[in-house]
Design a protein around this nucleic acid. Structure first.
Lengths: 220, 220
DNA sequence: TATCTTTATTACAAAAATGTAAGATTAGAG
DNA sequence: CTCTAATCTTACATTTTTGTAATAAAGATA
């Protein structure tokens, strides 16, 4: 979606993108821009900083409260402050007019690539050594093998994976697993670790969760 | 982590970052850079494009095969092609020397903010209207309320959310839920949808999964 | 080494998740 | 409007997940 008040530039951009395999739509002013955007859910927005009535940065700020749709700021003002501000407001990239069409296309490609796993969708696969961890289905795959993790095992494995090679205390894991409002046996964690270890062993990783007595666990 | 061969610039960068609350480490050349990076797991890398022996872009390319650690390219060559290339190789941002310290800090902040939920970690929260969906724990939160989803309900809700406002066929959902190797009753899906709907109703969203008879379902 | 504390393992029972079947509803074609 | 196919609801039985307790093993400390 192109948000740009200058019709000439807008058409130029549209033509460029249409010719390169993108579907485009255009908005000429800020009026209802937010609704239009939310409604249409474009994959990416090219946002002119100087669209009439409202500054593009204000629009970006409001948009960011509702959505993570990627935004590339387009501006004629080649000011470093604006560039930095765009980024801190949540723009995904920034380009100045006059723009080099090829650069613009590359940047669009890069932003889409960078954000496609995140925008609106859930990152489902995480890698640990040669294992693929599908958090959505709760399974770990290795070549042809595949083991299923239960919810608790998933939470523990995710947590360890997010802190790989760092020691994770038992308390941290307890908090990740259970609201500290509800009381559970201290040993419940130990049992769940044990179960996770067994499953990892099944798939050929017997000793990856190491005990650091008195400190916690570490995923190697 | 600063990867930069010019000691003066390297020290300057280090001082700037140290003074602004970051912990830094430095690498002076490409030798074993990849191992060092993988080993240390920095939160962000400032990568000089002209480090000795190997071009920074090559390093970046190899790194991207192993990790998504955010990288900001630093270069003295103010060439648009390099900038575009950096981005398409997977750099998260790009800055030219001489750099404005404040801009650099802002960009570092922006990149860290943008990537913190993704780097090495699992994106755990997704938003639907005013609900927060924690995929890792399988719970949906609304203000003080909170409902727990089972694995099947999570899979269905995730799938619908990833295709919000688009019609999703029953077959798609069946495939998302079960390997098509194992046979399950057609009705199993209906029952699971029903269960999910009840939970969504509990939390104040009674009619968000709409049936499109003969076609599938749609999340409004 | 002896002792004490931390962590592991196992078996078991309670709770939760899930597929099935039977019957009820509903939407849309004719 | 009527009929039929699609979808829904409910209840139930099986399977899975999970916490507990009792006992065992392993590390640390003296």
């Amino acid at each position: 979606m192109i948000v740009e008040d200058d019709k000439i530039i807008s058409n130029e951009l549209k033509k460029l993108l249409d010719n390169n395999g993108y579907e485009t739509s255009t908005l000429k002013d800020y009026k209802n821009a937010l609704e239009e955007i939310i409604n249409e859910k474009p994959d990416l927005i090219l946002l002119d900083i100087n669209i009439p009535f409202i500054n593009g940065e204000v629009l970006l700020q409001s948009l960011r409260k509702k959505s993570n749709i990627p935004v590339i700021m387009v501006t004629s003002i080649n000011s470093e402050i604006d560039e930095a501000l765009s980024i801190s407001y949540g723009a995904d990239d920034y380009i100045t007019k006059p723009y080099n069409p090829n650069i613009l296309l590359l940047r669009i490609g890069a932003v889409l690539k960078r954000t496609k796993t995140n925008y609106g969708s859930i990152q489902t696969e995480l890698t640990y050594k040669d294992l693929k961890f599908d958090i959505q289905k709760g399974i770990i795959k290795k070549d042809n093998n595949e083991i299923e993790l239960t919810k608790n095992e998933m939470i523990i494995f995710s947590y360890l994976l997010n802190h790989q090679n760092k020691i994770v205390t038992r308390d941290e894991l307890m908090t990740a697993l259970w609201d500290n409002s509800e009381y559970v046996n201290e040993n419940a964690l130990t049992v769940n670790i044990s179960r996770l270890r067994n499953k990892l062993k099944e798939i050929g990783y017997p000793d990856v969760i190491d005990t650091r007595k008195g400190m916690g666990y570490i995923l190697l």
